[in-house]
Computed example of a mutant assay.
Amino acid sequence: MIEFALAVFFLLITPGPGVLSTAGIGAAYGYHAGFAYLGGLMLGGGVTMLLVITGLAAIMLAVPWLRFVLLLASVGYLAYLAWRIASAGTRIGFTAATKPLGFRNGFLLQFINPKAYVVPTTLFSGFAFLPQSPVWEVIIKVVIFNAIWVPVHLIWLAAGAKLGSLDLSHRMQRTINIGMAGAMLAVVAIALLANR
């Protein structure tokens, strides 16, 4: 169980679309503005986790045209988010918008977020610690996962908000934006390579 918790922590803390966009919202709009987005990410992540646990994700992704459509949507949206972050100029976060990404955007992101499928697949297909009681194992894993998911995402939101509040030089802010966009594009590249 400890190995499972450590795997959850390290898989969640690494940059992916959810945490990078959360940090971007924190940087651009502040800490409290990210709560609705986080709520959407959490619910969407819960649904994708359920799809993985029940095997429905594997069935859906076995349909070639559906897999291709989801891949295109994923790559397109993640590239768009990377562009919004990179083109924010000297302001850390997203390009100017009237309001932050909200609940709906967080929820929908999880369905095209490759990490939302890869992480649960890795965690729930491995790290068996109650083989005699698989239902309880899944329940315990979901509880542990969420007990780590919430603070990790709140940390990324707070880090983004703190970064956005610092009086950094324009060059440093631009460098941070390009680094965040590069990390997002790395996720896109990994998704493309995994689907070759």
Rank of each mutant, 00 (worst) to 15 (best):
Y80M: 15
V138P: 00
A23G: 09
T175L: 11
S133G: 06
Y80K: 07
R104I: 14
L101V: 11
A27E: 15
A189N: 06
M42G: 08
S21E: 14
A88H: 11
L78Q: 10
V63G: 11
V142H: 05
F107T: 09
S21T: 15
I148N: 02
T121N: 12
P131Q: 03
V119S: 02
S169L: 06
G30Q: 15
H32P: 05
R67F: 15
L108V: 12
V138S: 13
L166G: 06
K162G: 15
P100W: 08
V119W: 00
A181L: 12
I176Y: 08
W83D: 12
P131W: 01
G16L: 01
V19M: 09
S21H: 10
I13Y: 06
W65C: 04
L38D: 11
F94Q: 06
L20K: 00
T98Q: 08
K162H: 12
E137L: 00
Q110W: 09
L166P: 03
L193Q: 10
M42P: 02
G45S: 13
Y31C: 02
L192H: 09
L11C: 09
M172V: 13
N146Q: 11
V47C: 03
L41N: 09
P131S: 04
L123T: 04
T121R: 01
T14W: 11
S165A: 15
G30K: 11
F145H: 05
E3V: 07
M60D: 05
P100A: 12
L61R: 01
A36H: 06
G30P: 15
G16Y: 14
L41E: 13
G55H: 05
L50D: 10
G46L: 14
G182N: 09
F68K: 10
I112Y: 07
A86Q: 02
P64N: 07
T175E: 14
G26Y: 13
M60F: 14
F94A: 08
P120L: 04
V19S: 11
P131E: 03
L163N: 04
Y37T: 08
P120Y: 08
L168P: 05
A159D: 10
V75G: 07
I155F: 03
P131L: 02
L72E: 05
L51R: 01
G40Y: 05
F4R: 08
A161K: 01
L101R: 06
R91Q: 11
G179L: 13
F129E: 05
V47T: 11
V119P: 01
L154I: 14
F103K: 03
A5T: 03
G179E: 10
I144H: 01
T22L: 12
A28K: 15
K141W: 04
A73K: 03
A73V: 09
R67V: 05
T54K: 02
M172L: 09
K162Y: 05
S87A: 09
V75P: 00
W83E: 12
L41P: 01
A82L: 11
R196K: 05
L43I: 14
P120G: 04
A88L: 06
F103W: 13
Y31E: 12
G160Y: 07
I13A: 12
Q132R: 02
A159Q: 06
Q173R: 13
V8C: 07
G164M: 07
A147D: 09
L50W: 08
N177Y: 11
I85Q: 10
P151F: 09
F127S: 01
I155T: 06
R171H: 14
T22C: 13
G89F: 11
L66R: 03
L70V: 08
V187I: 14
I112N: 00
I176F: 07
L43K: 04
L154Q: 09
